[in-house]
């Protein structure tokens, strides 16, 4: 792929003022997503993955949050410090977003058709009829059976899976260039999750929309994403091509995340009784020391880890990790 990145985040820093002091929720985050690519962001709760999404959407709650420095570029438009009106036009039109809980993201007093049509009319100068036609067309695109009838349904009349399809339809109704999916299937059943993944993949094949998939599930990353960024305590600790990162993780946290989850095994008789653990808990962002934030939980920790915070460096072409041990092994 020779095309430049469609969405490019560079050295993004977001700070939150809390009672306990300043919390750096995003610490020099850099990400690129190309057209037709799926970028996965994975990490535990509080690692900053959702905040990354909100920053891109220009939805960082302010106060207490604030983008301190860095840049977010969509094509050649700079989104940081863009005025609210201009940003509102981009939001929804150029960047769409779907959330974890489709029930609370849909307005219960309007039909789903009305809501999709509304979001179309907000960004495009079309009539009510055309907008409704687009809504039905979108419902069809997200493989909802009997789209004409379902357009007149209220959110509570649909199942969880159907509601998430409606959310996707709404997010894609203005044909955005980037779709941000924040834990889109966490609230859904396994079989429905598989359907939604297929749907996202098919839609992307057709439209070439770039997708940023935010999840805690390494399995979802493996199945859907092209590239992955692993986040811990507000930093990206490892990023690269999915196949490579999953088969040869360089950062101990990534290794832990892969190994501590009981994945389905083809040979259940051979399953060991104990899972690998990452001991301890995620540190509070307000009292991160100077060293690597993962050092207190790391099983490979060396002296340097406790004093100096490692930066991302290339362990392989297109594969970076922020770990002194990995760096030492390279040289």
């Amino acid at each position: 792929m020779t095309a430049g990145p469609l969405l490019s985040v560079t050295d993004l820093v977001v700070d939150f003022k809390t009672r306990a002091g300043n919390a750096r929720v995003l610490d020099h985050i850099s990400l690129d997503v190309k057209e037709g690519e799926i970028l996965g962001i994975v990490g535990e709760s509080g690692c900053g993955k959702s905040m990354t999404a909100l920053s891109i959407m220009g939805l960082v709650p302010n106060p207490p949050g604030k983008i301190t420095s860095g840049s977010i570029k969509l094509g050649d438009q700079e989104l940081v410090d863009m005025d609210i009106e201009a940003l509102r036009k981009i939001r929804g039109k150029e960047i769409g977003m779907i959330f974890q809980e489709p029930m609370t993201s849909l307005n219960p007093v309007f039909t789903v058709g009305e809501q999709i049509a509304e979001s179309v009319r907000l960004h495009e100068n079309v009539g009510a009829k055309a907008a409704h036609a687009r809504a039905v067309e979108m419902l069809k695109a997200v493989e909802i059976p009997e789209p004409e009838a379902r357009a007149h349904a209220y959110p509570h009349q649909l199942s969880g899976g159907m509601r998430q399809r409606v959310m996707i339809a709404m997010a894609l109704s203005c044909r955005p260039r980037v779709l941000i999916a924040d834990e889109p299937t966490t609230a859904l059943d396994t079989t429905v999750q598989a359907q939604i993944f297929d749907l996202l993949q098919n839609l992307q094949d057709e439209t070439g929309t770039a997708i940023v998939l935010i999840t805690h599930d390494m399995g979802a990353i493996a199945e859907l994403a092209d590239t992955v960024a692993v986040m811990y305590a507000g930093k990206i600790v490892e990023k690269g091509k999915v196949d490579r990162v999953l088969s040869h993780p360089d950062h101990p946290y990534t290794k832990g995340l892969i190994a501590c989850v009981p994945h389905l095994s083809a040979n259940p008789a051979a399953i060991s009784e104990r899972l690998m653990e990452i001991p301890g808990v995620v540190p509070a962002l307000t009292d991160l020391g100077t060293g690597c934030a993962f050092a207190p939980r790391c099983s490979e920790v060396i002296t340097k880890c406790r004093t100096d915070s490692p930066r991302l460096f290339e362990t392989q072409p297109e594969h970076k990790a922020a770990c002194w041990v990995a760096q030492k092994e390279m040289t």
Partner: peptide, 19 residues
């Protein structure tokens, strides 16, 4: 089949049966 797993990848995902 529906369970996402690190042992799978983008390519073989499509070949599986779906409910």
């Amino acid at each position: 089949e529906a369970v996402p797993s690190v042992h799978q990848n983008k390519r073989n995902r499509r070949e599986r049966i779906r409910l």
